[in-house]
């Protein structure tokens, strides 16, 4: 057992996903099963092996001239907003209510 239900609840909180009790229980079983399958990674002798964060070796920074190009307009940026007001994203209060 790698993770308890309490720990999974904490993970859900910082993943910003609200899970009910049953979902937490199912997720705990799943995560423990997967972590068991990831054992080979923890058992490898990797001393002195450099990590590869990107599959293509030898990439260099790609530079371009600092030229102004058209970007999203305000209307385009707001086109899929769940809610908007006066050309801005409208959200529920950041402060107030439970859970603050």
């Amino acid at each position: 057992m790698y993770l308890s239900e309490n720990e999974v609840r904490d993970i859900a909180t910082y993943t910003r996903i609200r899970l009910n009790k049953d979902a937490v229980r199912e997720m705990t079983v799943y995560l423990n099963e997967v972590l068991d399958g990831l054992k080979p990674i923890t058992q490898y002798q990797l001393e002195g092996v450099e990590p590869t964060f990107h599959p293509i070796a030898g990439l260099v920074n790609v530079m371009r001239d600092d030229v102004i190009h058209p970007g999203f307009s305000q209307a385009e940026a707001l086109a899929n907003a769940p809610d908007e007001q006066e050309g801005q994203f409208r959200i529920t209060p950041i402060l107030g209510g439970e859970g603050v």
């Binding site: 910003r16 609200r18 899929n80 907003a81 769940p82 209510g97 439970e98 859970g99």
Partner: peptide, 25 residues
């Protein structure tokens, strides 16, 4: 997917954090 700029938003939350958690769930 934060329920603010695009994507599904669950209505009825009391604050932004709750809205984000419920929307993603």
């Amino acid at each position: 997917f934060d329920s603010v700029r695009y994507g599904y938003r669950q209505c009825g939350a009391n604050n932004l954090n709750e809205q984000c958690e419920r929307s993603r769930a």
